[in-house]
């Protein structure tokens, strides 16, 4: 196995594109190293992205906040603009692993790992985040929900990495939240995760909403029916019931060591209702 720490994105892309065999880019490495140690993967090359200065930036752009691929969760959760504007994304990112893991793990790594249970992804989906993909053929912007295609698989092509994620600026009276269910209080993988972002008009009617649902299907879902249940309502009990029903209906989970189908379907609705209330309260304050 070879280990490379390029200093620029271009070098990283070249290394990844020209290498033969099994190649992994590494951001925080908190998943990759576990798989490496267990013998589950046997890479020929690991390309460390953390020495690339450009990927460490958190930059306010005209249409949102751009977060570099190598920014660890802990750093994002110390960034005042990120916390103020995207509390749901910060919450979700701040739930990955322990304090120790927080110092290493990244949102982009979490996304590219393509686990259906990844905590940050439902929140990113709800926030309408856009991934900037860089590769041998240039740069393209892709909605985050289009990155994972199946457990452990992404739509990235050979040589491509995600350089950053744009968190689009929200209109006034917007709020977002992320909740996950785990059996303990910490250190578990989400049994269900729900990210919700919503926007109200001046009269408190919901004009826009996005709902991301994790750990209930092969990839994180953007549930349009759930958003429709909120839009046009005051996010009252009836709307919340409809939201919960839509989330439960969208869930097509499996039975595994972390939860049953029955449990996940129900909890998807329960968490959606709770997350929506938090998002609503935040929207009302913004």
């Amino acid at each position: 196995m070879r280990f490379e720490s390029p200093a620029t994105v271009a070098e990283a892309v070249t290394l990844l594109n020209e290498a033969t065999g099994t190649v992994y880019p590494m951001a925080g490495g908190t998943d990759l190293l576990v798989r490496l140690r267990s013998g589950f993967v046997e890479p020929d090359l690991i390309v460390d992205l953390k020495r690339i200065d450009a990927l460490h930036m958190i930059v306010q752009e005209a249409d949102g906040l751009r977060v570099g691929a190598a920014v660890p969760s802990a750093e994002l959760n110390e960034h005042a603009d990120a916390l103020a504007g995207w509390p749901g994304v910060c919450e979700a990112t701040g739930l990955i692993g322990s304090t120790q893991v927080q110092g290493r793990c990244t949102m982009v790594g979490n996304l590219c790992n393509a686990s259906p249970a990844a905590d940050s992804v439902p929140a990113l989906v709800a926030a309408g985040a856009i991934a900037r993909v860089v590769g041998p053929n240039g740069t393209r912007d892709v909605p985050v929900e289009e990155i994972p295609t199946a457990p452990g698989r992404t739509s990235l092509k050979k040589g491509e990495i995600i350089e950053s994620v744009l968190l689009p600026t929200k209109p006034a009276h917007s709020g977002e939240a992320y909740l996950r269910f785990i059996p303990r209080t910490e250190m578990d993988i989400a049994v269900v995760g729900v990210g919700i972002s919503l926007t109200l008009d001046d009269s408190g009617i919901c004009t826009d909403a996005r709902v991301g649902l994790g750990a209930v299907a092969a990839t994180v879902l953007l549930v349009e029916d759930a958003a429709k249940a909120l839009i046009g309502t005051k996010v009252d009990d009836a709307a919340l019931d409809a939201l919960a029903a839509a989330c439960s209906a969208a869930a097509s989970p499996i039975n595994d060591k972390r939860g049953t189908i029955e449990f996940r379907v129900e909890i998807a609705g329960t968490l959606a209702r709770r997350a929506a209330k938090i998002a609503l309260a935040r929207a009302q304050q913004n």
């Binding site: 280990f3 490495g29 908190t30 190293l33 576990v34 140690r37 690991i46 460390d48 660890p72 802990a74 322990s98 304090t99 120790q100 893991v101 110092g103 290493r104």
Partner: peptide, 10 residues
């Protein structure tokens, strides 16, 4: 300045 699991750092 940040705590890490040294088993998850190369």
């Amino acid at each position: 300045g940040r705590i890490v699991c040294s088993c998850l750092v190369l």
